[in-house]
Design a binder for these strands. Structure first.
Lengths: 186, 186
DNA sequence: GTCTATATTCCGATAGAC
DNA sequence: GTCTATCGGAATATAGAC
């Protein structure tokens, strides 16, 4: 892995652990054994680094989307959930939640970069739900996009809340969501 | 309102707007027309101020709980939602979401203060759901505490996500949640 | 209770040598 | 591409006068 990629990876970890405003170039320099000036060589400003983190996560999302393209709706949804499972196992929140709470304190370029990513995720989950409903494996009555917002906010929110209420609540919520989606109504 | 209360109110606003790590005593001093040293007289440390903000919100929650005690379950749930509606109208996220994303960068005293508050809210919503189900006005299959987590994370999450996806998504989600709860299954 | 003044620390960022 | 050195600014916090 290049130095640049290592910086992005460690910055990403810190943003999901402590928040964008709570991590510093010095934190990275300590972990990497290089000086802060060297980090500035790769990313002139902290905003530049933030944007790189968003792009990296976006690519990761798109790769997961592509890798599960031929699978059924349930597998796709489980792939989507797997992202949050991994985050939870590391005590992290998700990038959207972390950046959105701090959004109005950040450079507008961050919001600009984040917006299409969020919309892409929302579209992906919406499509998964539509497909699942069409094939009769998912059952829900709300509009697909609304149902996608519900699922996304449940996962985003439980990563945050379960930092306080306890780790087991994450699986409680994830399991309930799957069960509810699979259950036929009326 | 006393100076102390004004500080708490403005600090609360800033935490919900920009996050704990992004606001400063200087921000408060500017808004109030007093110096930062005067704020330190009331709150020796920023952590002390954070704790005061949590206590104030906790009292506000408990007051709402008490004020709606004799009402029906639907009214209680709408009272709970009204908190988020007010926040959304001001572009704010909720205190739990804001503090949880930054939690691991804050003084442990913050977490200690926040934990019983979150548990109190969770208990309240759980009780509302239990009552609603018993009286036949709410319908859901998950455990009441799990369903409460789902509702809370939906509201917490949509305050954050709708900063990006657009304001109307908040009402979309809120309406869908109420409709789903009121709909009888099978 | 609020002020001036200041101590201290930390952070983002840049210049210039290697 | 990484280093040393440093600038400029901002933030928390404290001392002491009023």
């Amino acid at each position: 892995m290049t130095t640049k990629d290592t910086i992005i990876k460690l910055a990403s970890d810190l943003i999901l652990e402590k928040g964008f405003n709570a991590f510093s170039f010095y934190d990275l320099s300590e972990k990497m054994g290089i000086k802060t000036a060297s980090i500035h060589y790769h990313f002139p400003s902290k905003t530049d680094l933030g944007i790189a983190v968003i792009r990296q996560q976006s690519e990761s999302f798109i790769a997961l989307q592509a890798a599960t393209e031929s699978k059924d709706a349930l597998s796709k949804l489980e792939a989507f959930f797997s992202i949050y499972i991994r985050h939870k196992s590391q005590g992290k929140v998700c990038l959207v939640g972390s950046l959105c709470t701090d959004l109005y304190s950040l450079d507008p370029a961050i919001e600009k970069e984040l917006k299409p990513v969020v919309e892409g995720i929302l579209q992906w989950v919406t499509d998964i739900l539509k497909e699942g409903k069409r094939k009769g494996v998912f059952h829900f009555s709300a509009a697909p996009r609304t149902k996608a917002l519900l699922l996304i906010t449940n996962m985003l929110g439980i990563l945050q809340v379960s930092r306080i209420t306890g780790k087991t609540d994450f699986n409680e919520v994830r399991t309930a969501l799957l069960k509810e989606l699979k259950t036929k109504k009326e």
